[in-house]
């Protein structure tokens, strides 16, 4: 039996996404688009001295992509760019089922709610879109696309 995908935390973030706005004065911005399902979002960050002071996103997509981007922005605030990179790598391993949150130390916190998504291969890209976009913004890539 697969783990339930639509857990309360995810549904709640979908209904009330955090930091769901364009960020004035952002230093790092990227656009993410999944042409297959039409999910389309922008990630904004204000980075000062290597620290992410603020992060936000806007756009449209399914509950998984929206909740994932929402939780991501909440967890990025106050992290250094290097920490964001670590989190990106850990989240990536999480959604492809390579990182089991109960089995080894990690920095994911509440993001571990996505631990069951690898059992829904068609939806992994939904959970990753915001993260790839954030990663693109860190590397100053203007537009990223996941399929």
């Amino acid at each position: 039996m697969r783990e339930e995908l639509y857990q309360q935390t995810i549904l709640e973030h979908n209904r009330n996404p955090r930091n769901f706005k364009k960020l004035e004065g952002a230093t790092h911005v990227a656009e993410g688009y999944n042409p297959l399902c039409g999910d389309h979002l922008w990630v904004y960050m204000k980075i000062n001295g290597g620290v992410i002071e603020e992060a936000s996103f806007e756009g449209s997509g399914c509950a998984i992509s929206k909740a994932s981007a929402s939780m991501m922005t909440a967890s990025l605030k106050g992290r250094t760019m290097a920490e964001a990179q670590v989190l990106f790598d850990e989240f990536h391993q999480l959604v492809i089922g390579e990182l089991k949150p109960d089995e080894r130390p990690h920095h994911l916190g509440k993001l571990a709610v996505f631990s069951g998504i690898w059992q829904y291969p068609a939806r992994v890209k939904c959970a990753s879109l915001g993260w790839h976009t954030m990663h693109g913004a860190l590397e100053k890539t203007k537009s990223v696309s996941t399929e």
């Binding site: 399914c62 829904y120 068609a122 939806r123």
Partner: peptide
């Protein structure tokens, strides 16, 4: 209020 992909999965 429901994205088609979420509907498809449910």
């Amino acid at each position: 209020g429901i994205h088609p992909h979420d509907l498809g999965t449910i």
